[in-house]
Design a protein around this nucleic acid. Sequence first.
DNA 1: ATTTGACTTCGAGTGCACTCAAAGGGTGAA
DNA 2: TTCACCCTTTGAGTGCACTCGAAGTCAAAT
Lengths: 116, 116
Amino acid sequence: MTIQEAAQRSGLSAHTLRYYERIGLIHSVGRNLSGHRDYAEEDLRWLDFLTKLRTTGMPIADMCRYAELRRMGEHTSPERLAMLELHRERVQARIAELSKDIKVLDLKIDVYKGRV
Amino acid sequence: MTIQEAAQRSGLSAHTLRYYERIGLIHSVGRNLSGHRDYAEEDLRWLDFLTKLRTTGMPIADMCRYAELRRMGEHTSPERLAMLELHRERVQARIAELSKDIKVLDLKIDVYKGRV
DNA sequence: ATTTGACTTCGAGTGCACTCAAAGGGTGAA
DNA sequence: TTCACCCTTTGAGTGCACTCGAAGTCAAAT
C-alpha cells in the first residue's frame, strides 16, 4: 500500500506518516523496488492505535517511548501496561473535567437565554 | 489586588495575565498610582470564565472575539450566545469522542492483563 | 542613600506537533 | 522522449499559546 493509500486509510497526512516514521513511532515500514514506502495491514492497525493515543492527548514523546518498548519485545509488557493504565486515568480525569466545565457553559447559556 | 495575587487566585501566571491583557482578552484592568495593575473582583470572575473556555479547548482567537463582543455591549448577546452554544456542542462532541476512545484503551489494557 | 525586589512595556524565545520546501529519482502515458 | 506526477531525504518553516529577557520605574527597608 502506498503512502497515499495509508494516509487515506489512517486519516493522517503523508507528511505526518513520514514524520512519525522519522521520530521512531513507526518502525521499518517496507520499501518496494523503487524505495517507496509500502505499508502493510499491520502498519495500519498500529497507526490506528497510535491515533487513538494521540486523539486522547498522549504526548508524542510518550508514544515514542511506548513504541520503543514494543520494539524491545514481550518482556516490556508490564511497563507498557502501566503506561496505558496511567494514560487511561488521565483520559478519565479529562472527561470528568470537561463534564464539569460543560455545566458552567450550560449555566451561562441559560443566563443568556433568560435575558432574551 | 496585585498581579501576583490575581495570578494566585486565577491559577494563571503573571506572564499569562499580562499576555491576556495585551491581546485584548482582558480589558482595562485598573492601575494604581505607581502604574501597577490593580485587579478587581470582577476581573477575577471574568478570568475564571475565560479559563473555563480555555480548558474546554476554545482557541484564544475565539476567546478574543467573545471578549470583543462583550465590550461592544448588550446588543451582541445573541452572537455571544451562538458562540457559547457552538462551543458547547464541540465540548459535548469531545466528551463523546474521549468516552469512545477510552473503551479502546480498556480493551487494550484487558489484552495486556490477560497476557500476564 | 542605597539596595532589594516587584512592577512596567515590548520584543523575542520556547515547545509542541506538525507541515512544507528543495533537490533529486522513478514510472507511466502521450 | 518528454511530460506529469509520484516518491525519497533532510532541514527549515508554521501556528498556537504561552514564556521569558531586557531595560527601565518605583517604593519600602536598611
